[in-house]
């Protein structure tokens, strides 16, 4: 088993510095399609799919290994070791922001800095901490995935009616988008939304940029603020955006924020 086939690793562009993009819960590395063109001319860009998603090798989905985000963090370190020379700039969305944080705590020397898009170390409210959800909410979410797995995990085909012009999307891409094995999707959702890695937040000294959407149901501002306050060296930029994917719905604002951070920190 190669790391390449396990994680469907793609390397594009070239440059002195390496940027690793890691997608969040839901889809796959295609989520970075609006950002990659801006970086591939000056950076070596590494893209990959978390095991269990996209075109990763589903047979490598070990329910024990991936029973916590540490399993993914170990994979990330292996990818960096295999594909990068020197410490990397890591861009992680949502759950991958947490995965990156865990990897950076384990092997800080492998990370120059990180951009955390919509991060949340824990989704459940506890005491003063406002994760955004009650435990009941998260249980309901998991139940819904469980009982509605046809809708969640199977083919999210584009509507056949009046399809708008989207020339950059190839046929193949459309069919594999956000699709995965239902059992894996269910397990991954539980691991993602029930995880609590707040203890790692203060330990992560890697220079970090938190990209926080102004209206994000999944990662509310209170979480972004908590992270910025708790991490030893973190900036936060609020992007005017409804939703959890500023790199999709507000790519320009996202790029500006990242560039500005990199300009300051590199």
């Amino acid at each position: 088993m190669s790391i390449q086939s396990r994680n469907n690793v793609n390397v594009v562009g070239s440059g002195k510095e390496t940027i690793v993009f890691a997608h969040g819960f839901g889809c796959d590395q295609n989520m970075w399609q609006y950002l990659v063109p801006s970086y591939k001319d000056n950076f070596r860009v590494i893209l990959f799919d978390l095991v269990g998603t996209g075109k990763s090798d589903l047979s490598q989905y070990d329910f024990d290994k991936y029973d916590s985000l540490h399993g993914y963090a170990d994979d990330l370190i292996e990818i960096i070791d295999e594909y990068a020379e020197g410490p990397v700039i890591f861009v992680g969305h949502s759950v991958s922001a947490t995965i990156g944080m865990l990897a950076a705590v384990k092997s800080p020397e492998k990370f120059r800095c990180q951009i955390m898009v919509g991060p949340s170390p824990s989704y459940i409210n506890e005491g003063d901490y406002i994760g955004g959800f009650s435990r009941t909410d998260i249980e309901e979410l998991c139940d819904m995935i469980d009982s509605n797995y046809l809708g969640w995990a199977s083919n999210m085909a584009p509507a056949i009616m009046g399809a708008p012009e989207q020339p950059e999307l190839g046929e193949e891409l459309k069919n594999s988008f956000c699709r995965t094995d239902p059992a894996i999707a269910k397990h991954f959702a539980r691991v993602t939304f029930l995880s609590d890695h707040r203890d790692a937040v203060a330990k992560c000294a890697t220079p970090s940029l938190i990209l926080q959407c102004s209206d994000d149901f999944i990662a509310p501002r209170s979480v972004g603020e908590y992270m910025q306050k708790t991490m030893p060296d973190a900036d936060m930029v609020i992007i005017e955006n409804v939703g959890h994917c500023p790199h999709l719905s507000a790519p320009h604002a996202s790029i500006d924020a990242i560039d500005s951070f990199l300009y300051q920190r590199l």
Partner: peptide, 10 residues
Amino acid sequence: APLLQMQGSV
């Protein structure tokens, strides 16, 4: 939202 953004329809 990502699907609508990327493939225009669900």
